[in-house]
């Protein structure tokens, strides 16, 4: 990541903070002052789903190539995924407390993030239970993909059975209340900049494990030559 991009990112993020707190109007009916949390909570939740997809992609790549580097990538995307899932759950339940009156309501989206947390948790308990490296990588990748194929069912089944408390119409452009232009500008730029920020974080972690892998391979080769 070049210097220029870093500067753009920092300026953009600062603008978003200012925009969210000062520039964009509040949604008057349901959310009131808590409209602001929306610009930060939604990107975090979106990011944890994104990392889940990335992890599934790298798991697939690992099974295809048997390259342990991909396993390491899948692992770090799951790590970041669980981190952001926890963040989204915490910010979400604070929000839920003030708007709906309780920390947890089993609304479809809360259910989905809960399931994601369960999957992430299961993934890491599986990893910690297998010592042998290649076996751990294979089992974890298979589990990731198995969890991945069940996701469409949650999307399909859960909303039909639990009714939603989420302010869908506010986000959904076809709904009753449209986002105002300023809100929309702040929301989408926040979404984009957050995604870039988190992907940058991911990129850096990727470089880190890649370098570690190179070092280890080097040491291994040296041992083999002896």
């Amino acid at each position: 990541m070049s210097k220029l991009w870093k500067i753009i990112l920092y300026i953009g993020l600062s603008l978003i903070i200012i925009g969210a707190f000062v520039w964009a109007p509040l949604e008057p009916k349901i959310l009131k002052e808590y409209t602001r949390i929306f610009y930060f909570h939604v990107p975090v939740a979106w990011i944890c789903v994104l990392f889940f997809l990335i992890a599934a992609y790298y798991s697939f790549q690992f099974l295809r190539t048997k390259d342990l580097l991909y396993d390491a990538y899948a692992k770090i995307s799951n790590e970041l995924g669980i981190l952001f899932a926890i963040l989204a759950t915490v910010t979400g339940s604070i929000w839920a407390k003030v708007t709906w009156g309780s920390f947890w309501n089993w609304d479809p989206r809360e259910t989905s993030i809960f399931i994601l947390l369960l999957i992430y948790g299961a993934y890491f308990s599986l990893r910690s239970a297998v010592e042998q490296e290649d076996r751990r990588a294979r089992l974890a990748a298979v589990y990731s993909l198995l969890a991945f194929v069940t996701v469409p069912f949650f999307v399909f089944v859960v909303p039909r059975i639990y009714f939603s408390l989420h302010p869908d119409p506010v986000i959904n452009t076809q709904g009753k209340i449209h986002l105002e232009l300023r809100q929309r500008v702040v929301f989408f730029s926040s979404l984009i900049f957050h995604t870039v920020l988190y992907l940058w974080l991911f990129q850096m972690r990727k470089t880190q494990v890649k370098l570690q892998m190179i070092l280890r391979l080097y040491k291994e080769n040296k041992m083999l030559e002896e």
Partner: peptide, 9 residues
Amino acid sequence: VLSFPILLP
């Protein structure tokens, strides 16, 4: 632990 999320649907 592992089967619960998978079998939840």
